[in-house]
Design a protein around this nucleic acid. Structure first.
Lengths: 210, 210, 210, 210
DNA sequence: TATGAATGAGCCTTCATTCAT
DNA sequence: GATGAATGAAGGCTCATTCAT
């Protein structure tokens, strides 16, 4: 891990600091680092160093490492939720909506890959750290619900056969999970995987419809 | 603290707790534990305790924790490879072959879920622990190659449009990844996700073909 | 986090929260907290929170935590000295004087147990924190001297045999120490212990004189 | 705190170590250090350094600092109990028994003052550290009970007036507490305080009976 | 007068690992 | 082949204290 500029700061309050800015910086760096290295491997010192503060300073903003992690998740979830909801709004057709969600995911990945990467990491860390499990599950609920409703409405609209409901839901979740997992390192890869998912849903994965 | 097994044997076979058996036990327990908790969270003591030895004893079988992890992966890979290869052998059609692979995965999951779970965990741990990365990537190559060849042969046989090659490959990898990730805790879930993948490949995910 | 007191005053006296009041409040709360938890366990934040200020604010009133502790002791000593001196004034007989001192201690304990408790704690904290030792010993001198003089005068007055001087002194000090230590939690207990001490001095501890 | 000899020991098991001996050494040093500085101020490093091991080694013998503290108490209690019980055995008269107990305390104080000092410290630390309170109270029970029974039997034997029972008990406890508190630093002081207590019980504190 | 942001030192604890036995 | 005693490094966290505002 590279270390930022080496400014041996003195005691006391640093001149002209914007507390909110520092908090945002910590969250962003924490997201990136947690995303790549996971909860365990990432140390408070890693995050603090990159954010240009001391490990103790983190405790000014978050009560514990676990709370910081949860805060990062909440932050990420709120962004993704907004993006996904904006994406589907105004679109009625299931295929269009699903495309829009995948495209939104891809755009976000282009802007800042750390979101997808982190969200992928959370699923693993939640399993590995029971202490945070409840909080993490709760924070993930919105997206979970979003996908369920997407399918529910598609069934209601007749875009998905009622008998296929749970299969389609399973497909969506598996695909979304697989996407963050396999492809978030490489944008081209990501694009291909998205195209594949769209095609699969349309029934033209193996070949274009004749 | 002394441990179990202290039954004064008289007749029959001499103490069967030979070193090979102990090694196998350690590997199996390590797989299960690494699978659930990951590399970092799992301690040598966790594994040793469950295996009925002291942490120091592990060092008779593996030079380090990292080496143990790699050994578990090699062991798992070799089993999965065999299963997958057996599954496709004798089947020419791509859809049949893919089905067979998924079914094999499901059967294995029923027998011992720790394999799939561990293989899922490896993808994450490899990213998180650069020291082991090379060894892990190498050990994972066989499966990677297996999937690539599956698609390659399907293209050659005309089962997959040449232009869709990379998309199908991407789909397979994403699905395989998503499967270990989302569904390995719950066999029913796993089965549904597999059905969804099969259906997706056949173009009938949203509804049965009329 | 902002705090209490925000009643828009209109008429009458201007904001009475002058600094002297704050200082007194800090001293009182520090005494109570130090008394129960001791020097080490009590944090600046504990005291500040209860006093309705920030930890940094303490430094406007006292140069350091240690200085605050010493200030609390000086404050307590001055009160106890006054009480004890008032108690003995006008009484010539040793037994009467000693009774008066014990009664004064009991009354104070009823009014505000934190004084006795704190004074008891000081004996321990002085041993444990060499940095404060000198200052603490000095501040405790008045009471020490008070007891010595009490005995001295009793010997001079013939109330105590000259040969028993150091024994009586020792008894007084041990009793005073034991009292804060064993009984300051429970007023009834305190009263019994005081009765015992009075009785012991009169030679009727085991039974009433026949 | 002075530090013992500086022997930079290497990794692995040191040659010819007696585990039991190390444990005893740790307990003894912990007792002395806890006695003087208390639970909070004493660090694992303090104890470890003096015992010639690293702080981590303590965890080989005790699960935590708190457990070590409790272990020290149990060890001390068991010794004191034995001494006190031996002291009273064979003596029927209350005054004789009480004298014997005080003498035993004095002898022990001469042999190793850290016992009395530690026992005095426990009363304070138990108040200051609620987490250990239950364990500490329980460990102190034997001595508590010993004193209660001493008085009970004295009442039964007619050595103490029934109406004076609780006062005598209070006196004993206060004195025992005051003794560890005030006088354990200085053997002469200790002796005087003990003489005073004996005299007080006999009713001849102020002067020899005429 | 008081706050809030930040630091540096230090503490308890855990862990992979070593080595004499 | 296995254990138990011990280490060194590191991690999360707390705390007294400082200083710009």
């Amino acid at each position: 891990m590279p270390r930022a500029a080496k400014k041996p700061r003195k005691l006391g309050r640093p001149p002209a600091t914007d507390s909110a800015e520092t908090r945002r910086r910590i969250l962003a760096i924490a997201r990136e680092t947690f995303a790549v290295h996971g909860y365990e491997v990432t140390t408070n010192r890693d995050i603090a160093n990159q954010a240009g503060v001391t490990p103790a300073a983190l405790y000014h903003y978050f009560p514990s490492k676990a709370d910081l992690y949860v805060a990062v998740l909440e932050d990420a979830q709120s962004l993704v939720s907004t993006r996904f909801n904006d994406a589907v709004s105004g679109r009625a057709n299931f295929l269009e909506r699903f495309d829009a969600v995948l495209d939104a995911a891809h755009v976000l990945n282009g802007e800042d890959p750390s979101y997808a990467r982190f969200l992928g990491a959370v699923r693993i860390d939640a399993r590995r750290h029971p202490e945070m499990r409840v909080a993490l599950d709760e924070a993930q609920l919105p997206t979970q619900k979003f996908v369920v409703e997407l399918v529910e409405e598609a069934v209601a609209a007749g875009d998905v056969a009622r008998s296929h409901r749970s299969m389609v839901l399973s497909f969506l979740l598996t695909t979304l999970a697989g996407l963050t997992d396999v492809a978030s390192d490489d944008l081209r890869h990501h694009r291909t995987a998205i195209a594949a998912a769209k095609s699969a849903l349309r029934g033209s994965l193996l070949a274009d419809p004749r």
